[in-house]
Nucleic acid binder design. Structure first.
Lengths: 136, 136
DNA sequence: TAGATTTGTAACCATTCTTGTTACAGGAGC
DNA sequence: GCTCCTGTAACAAGAATGGTTACAAATCTA
């Protein structure tokens, strides 16, 4: 339902976290994810803009800016879905109908709570948990 | 990000709940949502299959099977997203890589928790809350 | 009973989203 | 200078989304 950006982003970060002394190229990471290196670089770009990794043109690899235990899955979610709402609300309901006029605001309230609950749970899980589960 | 089915479904149910003595046609409801009547009938069909409303060919309108206070937003979510997972996980990660081999199972665990938290919050809100907010 | 109305559903379409791909400028290092 | 890498734009195929037409069958109404 939601696209696979979070999924691939966590995959990338797991590789970085589990090879802290290597410089993994986008091609190598793409080999593990089984996708195109550009897809990896696109996501790495989002993670860089969010301050989760550093990387620079010409230099192979990306480096985590924090310990895995300090990187929550919410951080990753926010990085790859910056500013997006979880639920879409249909636009242009009929303003001449009392329900139509107020539905967007009402749905906003409902959906905001649900989204926040989901984010709170993502915030409770960190990249360290991911790596631990991967190698357990 | 997630499509607007839940949004429109709640709109439909709000109209039914706030006009309990009328038989609202799909055309009337479509007028409030500002979409095509077939879109309404499609969603009403899902709500019917989930047991939230009854309706039948030839007879105008749909009727709630329960009081609004007994219809949770999770019921509606399950009706319109039956069997779908919230987060997609990229398929075919490389089985020759330890991370690739285990990432799907790990992500499944993480995502399941986040999805469940969201659903728990939806379960706490009912159609009665929606209607109350709409007419407050 | 005949005609009008309505639902349920299939089929189709345009638009947008998603993911993969090619291409290439420019940085880094040997 | 040559090679390798990242960042990024541009493009393309396929899927998803929402809207639309069409129509059979059920119900209602005059």
């Amino acid at each position: 339902m939601i696209n696979s950006r979070l999924s691939v982003a966590i995959h990338i970060l797991s590789l970085l976290a589990s090879h802290p002394h290597d410089r993994l190229t986008s091609e190598y990471i793409a080999g593990s994810v089984q996708t195109n290196p550009v897809v990896i670089r696109r996501l790495t770009g989002m993670l860089r803009k969010a301050g989760i990794v550093t990387s620079s043109p010409g230099t192979a690899g990306a480096v985590l800016t924090k310990a895995p235990v300090e990187i929550t899955l919410l951080d990753v979610y926010d990085a790859v879905f910056a500013g997006e709402e979880l639920f879409s609300i249909h636009d242009k309901p009929n303003p001449d109908c009392r329900v139509g006029r107020n539905i967007q605001d009402t749905l906003d309230t409902h959906f905001e709570r649900a989204e926040q609950a989901m984010k709170n749970e993502l915030a409770r899980q960190t990249l360290a948990d991911t790596v631990e589960h991967l190698f357990a």
